[in-house]
Simulated scan of single mutants.
Amino acid sequence: MNWIASLPMYNVTPALAADWRAFLADVLRDTAPLTHIVEADEPLHTFWRRADLLISQTCGYPLMHGLHEHVQLVATPEFDAPGCAGPNYSSVIMTRADGPVHSLETSRGLRVAFNQLDSNSGMNALRHVIAPLSRDGSFFSEAVVTGSHIGSLTAIAGNRADIAAIDCVTMAFVRDGLPQLAQSVREVAWTQASPGLPLVASSDVDASTVEALRSALDNALRADPVRAKRLRLKGFSTLSLTDYARIEQLENEALAFGYTRLA
């Protein structure tokens, strides 16, 4: 089979996108040199389900809501970023630097921004932390879907929203590469932790290739320590779907409060 590969999740700046592509090329060099590195030109939910997908990165929420039937876990990156502990990560809840929000409670009745309905970091983890504060399934006055964490931060900075939960790895990359945007927002609180964004392969990839990919990830990390530092990569863990059930736990705890959606 002619394989494809892509790392679409943390391309916060063009420089980071180039580093991720070079890192992926090193991973593939020893495992599947004829694999095509591609930019996903179709919805990610469709892309991740392709039978010819050798390796890509997804979010834990769609993984636990059907995607696990089509892919297998390869590894979970460990990042050097505030809010990360081993393969686990949290979201940092941000507001406008000169805005009125100084705690979660003071954001009641204001506008929330989030990247996607199926995002663990932007939606699910935030829903979980807001749920105990909700009343009759409501807390915010308006919910704005922005399409990306950068979009959510831009909405806050531009006074189109008041609060958002941002993947802590993304926020670290924003501080590294987009200082003006970083300075326009400030931290309010943190969500609880859950396993980070996993690297996955199609279920059609054989076990020996998956093991080779795991070795190649470690080799690519060691091959260029300077690049690894720019990517904030410390290593990789091998997790199971049982570990990722933590994401469903966060969801179920929010639902127990009757808080089914950000509202």
Rank of each mutant, 00 (worst) to 15 (best):
V210Y: 05
L181D: 05
A207I: 12
D204I: 00
V200D: 02
V205M: 07
L197Y: 10
D204V: 05
V185K: 06
L197E: 12
G196Y: 09
V205S: 01
A193P: 04
V185W: 05
T191Q: 06
E211P: 00
W190P: 08
R186A: 07
A189H: 10
Q180A: 15
L199M: 14
L197M: 08
A201N: 02
Q192V: 10
G196P: 10
R186N: 01
S208N: 08
A182N: 02
S202E: 02
V188C: 08
S203A: 14
A207Q: 15
Q192Y: 08
S184I: 03
G196F: 06
E211A: 15
A193W: 01
L197V: 00
S184Y: 06
S202C: 04
V210C: 12
A182G: 13
P198F: 06
Q180N: 13
D206M: 09
W190E: 11
D204T: 13
D204K: 11
P195C: 05
S194L: 07
S208I: 00
V205H: 07
D206C: 12
W190G: 05
S202T: 02
A189R: 03
Q180R: 15
A201G: 02
Q183F: 07
E211Y: 01
W190K: 12
A201W: 05
T191F: 08
V200S: 02
Q192T: 10
E211T: 13
S208R: 12
S194N: 07
S202R: 03
T209Q: 12
S203Y: 02
T209L: 10
T191G: 08
A201R: 07
E211K: 13
S184G: 10
E211G: 00
V205W: 06
E211I: 11
R186G: 03
L197N: 14
V205T: 10
A193L: 05
S203W: 01
E211V: 12
T209S: 11
E187S: 11
V205F: 04
A201Y: 01
E187N: 04
G196E: 05
A201C: 14
R186P: 01
A189I: 01
S194A: 15
T209E: 04
D206G: 08
Q180K: 14
S184M: 08
Q183Y: 05
V205A: 07
V210K: 11
A207N: 12
A193Y: 05
V210G: 10
L181H: 09
D206P: 06
P195Y: 03
L181R: 11
S202A: 01
E211H: 13
L199V: 02
Q180F: 09
Q183N: 15
A201F: 02
S184D: 11
S184Q: 12
Q183P: 00
S208L: 08
A182W: 04
V205K: 06
E187D: 09
V210E: 02
T209P: 03
E211S: 13
L181M: 14
D204S: 13
V188W: 02
V185Y: 03
V205L: 09
L197W: 04
S203K: 13
E211Q: 15
